[in-house]
Write a protein that binds this DNA or RNA. Structure first.
Length: 743
DNA sequence: ACCGGTTTAGTTTTT
DNA sequence: CTAAACCGGT
């Protein structure tokens, strides 16, 4: 019903081109597929391909000896934990010692396992929580229980993966208790916590209190500056480019290993540059120190080092935070684990919640083995497992359990649900990407007609480009949607340009920011930019370009000088500064970008955001650590207010963590796309891909559609096989979409 | 010597 | 799409 003629023609064209037996497969006439409405538009006997898929047909990943040993060791640990799990007897649960003191009826608000997790507040506690098992609810009740037990909120430290999650927990706790005690809890991401702590204790730790936080792109720019300065690219053609160098440096620090170890593990082709890269890493470190720049890893490392080396500081932290709660523990890296351990040594009241099956940040150094080895660090810890699922029905759980149980290691999954609806996940193979997109959008429209609001539906994919065809289809049918993940508001060029100006205003020695701003002045390239920055240094930070007036870029530089000096005035707000800078920047942007008007609207959004801030330092930190909103439709449209039109959600798997929808679509399930071809040779990476698939699938409350095009052409390869994650689960856990016999 | 337009190679995920 | 090498013009 929703196919307009051009869509039909397009699909028809593809059917004819790519399916030799298209005519013979059809049962009536030339265009039978379109005569009976939706559903039939996707002919091709692909369901038989799906019926025939076999895991043996896939090249298996070789498992090396040392990897095998590691697996066995961890399986042993997992097994020993399994035996320590407490299985509460519903009639023998400990009651709160003084029931009169507690306003909330914990016993009847939680299931027995959740109750145990919420009310065991002394000593180390490991909570293994399956997807959709009411993990957040348990943490909320536990927070309430702590407060009702008389624990001062200032003594509670709550670490979560996003700031949003922390805010939600505190907010809902406050609602539960009908007071605002929870507001005083120290909470946030590791990075936000480190930022706060390092600034607060700066004098004690001998740190500059006004350091600037730089994001990944800034960090890459610093690396690039050094790379050029040291002439590495001139010496070797194959010398890695800035983004790869930055990744390597960051990975070494996240995993707490030397550079050469990262190269050995993942970048063997770059081993010949080991010495140069080590040199570059050291230069990068010194550069940041000299310019008071902190990258994301510095926040973690500096806090860890301070806790390790500065005993008075460690004692202070231990005294301050006597009850620690950690969410998403499976995504903690080694450095973060050390930070936790140093603080928890004092009181030993530490609770961690996590699900080993949902660890998806190993690429960033997260070590889900932390959750397996927690009992080794805390031998006296109690272990509680919450497995009842409140999100999905049993048919979905059968499927997601099957995925999780294919994992090489981790706790066995046996999530169960009281909801016994009989709708299996649907697997569909379509002729090509256009047809796949059309199928997905048709189904979405069908759901909307049945009364499912768009904002209760999501399309979840492995990589941003997997959504291209679906976005095109949604745009052509005018369906509102938001994109989460992928390129962010803060990463857009014009936003970064304005932010760079602001950073100069705050700190005129910020060479990375200078480099960025100078190079967009017409007539100034790398060489001149370096010279100007030197001049600024010599002038002790004074912005005065009068010596350069006669150069051809002189007039433009004068405009920049005026704008920056004007923005430096202390009697104006941050928002006013943005306005001044925008006036300078707008004409430049106009020459740079065709769609400059929409981009200017982004700067207005930035203006609105800064209105809340008194301090620029605070604004820049927040902007780096907690980007305001990550949602906008595409490169050409400005930021969109999520609440506006209840749109459909398109999201990467990573950004979908912790969320749920009535119906979920997972497209592009071809082997080489999901799992990504880059992960096919390495067992650890392939395991992570499977966990990603598990996370994506387990977001669905009711309906799960798994789709793929028949083929995908990348620049060097041609993918046609369905994802191995589908081939390796039992076929009775899902239903294959048969286009000739619609449901 | 330096800038800037053009070509070409390589593309995951994010605090 | 985006970064960087390439190259031709000042």
């Amino acid at each position: 019903m929703n196919n307009n003629p051009s869509d039909k023609d397009k699909i028809l064209q593809f059917l004819k081109t790519f399916i030799p037996d298209y005519q013979s497969d059809s049962t009536a006439g030339n265009t039978p597929a379109f005569e009976t409405g939706t559903g039939n538009a996707y002919t091709g006997a692909y369901h038989t391909d799906l019926e025939r898929m076999q895991i043996d047909a896939y090249a298996q990943v070789p498992v090396e000896e040392d990897v095998q040993q590691r697996i066995e060791r961890l399986q042993q640990i997992a097994g020993s934990i399994e035996s320590r799990i407490i299985h509460p007897q519903p009639d023998k649960l400990p009651a709160p010692p003084d029931a009169a003191k507690y306003k909330i009826d914990y016993l009847n608000s939680l299931n027995p396992n959740q109750y145990l997790a919420a009310t065991t507040i002394n000593g180390p506690l490991l909570v293994i929580a399956g997807a959709g098992s009411g993990k957040t609810r348990t943490v909320i009740y536990r927070t309430a229980y702590l407060l009702e037990s008389g624990i001062p909120p200032e003594q509670i430290l709550l670490l979560t993966f996003t700031r949003k999650a922390a805010t939600e927990i505190v907010h809902r706790t406050a609602q539960l208790l009908k007071n605002n005690l929870a507001d005083k809890i120290m909470r946030g991401t590791y990075h936000a916590f480190a930022n706060h702590t390092l600034r607060h204790y700066a004098p004690m730790l001998n740190l500059p209190p006004n350091f600037t936080i730089i994001d990944t792109a800034d960090s890459e720019d610093v690396v690039d500056l050094i790379r050029q300065e040291m002439h590495f690219s001139k010496k070797h053609q194959a010398f890695p480019k800035k983004s790869r160098i930055q990744t390597i440096i960051s990975k070494a620090r996240n995993c707490n290993v030397p550079i050469e170890e990262v190269l050995r593990r993942e970048y063997t082709a770059l081993l010949e540059f080991t010495e140069d890269l080590k040199l570059l890493t050291e230069a990068y470190r010194q550069y940041k120190r000299a310019n008071k720049l902190f990258d994301y890893d510095d926040l973690m490392d500096t806090l860890r080092d301070a806790l390790r080396d500065n005993l008075p500081f460690r004692k202070t932290m231990q005294k301050t935070y006597r009850y620690i709660m950690v969410d998403e523990f499976q995504d903690t890296n080694v450095v973060q684990k050390e930070i936790l351990d140093y603080i928890a040594q004092g009181s030993r009241n530490i609770m961690v919640v996590g699900d080993d099956a949902q660890s998806i940040y190993a690429f960033r150094g997260a070590n889900f083995e932390n959750i397996l080895t927690f009992p080794a660090t805390y031998p006296d810890c109690k272990v509680v497992k919450i497995e009842q699922n409140y999100r999905s029905h049993q048919q979905l759980l059968n499927f997601t359990n099957a995925i999780a149980n294919n994992a090489k290691l981790g706790y066995r999954k046996a999530l169960f649900s009281a909801n016994q609806t009989q709708v299996k996940p649907i697997v569909a193979k379509l002729p090509d990407q256009e047809a796949e997109a059309a199928f997905v959008v048709d189904k979405i429209l069908e759901l909307r007609e049945k009364g499912i609001p768009l904002n209760d539906i999501a399309v979840i994919y492995r990589a941003t480009f997997h959504s291209n065809f679906i976005q095109t289809e949604l745009l052509s049918r005018s369906i509102p949607y938001v994109v989460v993940g992928g390129i962010k508001f803060t990463e857009r060029r014009h936003i970064k340009d304005i932010i760079a100006c602001l950073r100069i205003v705050l700190n005129p020695f910020d060479a990375v920011a200078w480099n960025r701003i100078l190079k967009i002045v017409p007539g100034i390239g790398q060489v001149t930019a370096s010279k100007i920055m030197e001049t600024i240094q010599q002038q002790n930070g004074k912005i005065d370009f009068s010596g350069l007036e006669k150069r051809k870029f002189g007039p433009d530089l004068l405009l920049l000088q005026q704008a920056l000096n004007q923005a430096m005035r202390t009697d104006i707000t941050v928002a006013t500064k943005i306005e001044i800078l925008k006036n300078y920047y707008a004409p430049i942007l106009q020459t740079l970008e065709a769609d400059y008007e929409t981009r200017l609207q982004d700067i207005d959004v930035l203006y609105t955001l800064t209105c809340k801030y008194e301090s620029m330092e605070r604004f820049l930190s927040d902007f780096a650590l907690d980007p305001p909103a990550t949602q906008f439709q595409n490169q050409n449209t400005p930021l969109i207010d999520e609440s506006e039109d209840k749109p459909l959600t398109l999201t990467t798997v990573h950004s979908a963590k912790g969320l749920e929808w009535y119906a979920v679509f997972v497209p592009h399930l071809l082997d080489g796309l999901f799992p990504s071809v880059r992960a096919l040779k390495n067992m650890d990476q392939l395991e992570e891909e499977r966990r990603l698939f598990y996370v994506a699938s387990s977001r669905a409350k009711e309906l799960l559609y798994l789709t793929m095009p028949a083929y995908f052409n990348s620049w060097d390869q041609y993918y046609t096989m369905p994802s191995r994650f589908l081939a390796e689960v039992h076929k009775n856990t899902f239903k294959i979409w048969n286009n000739r016999q619609p449901e």
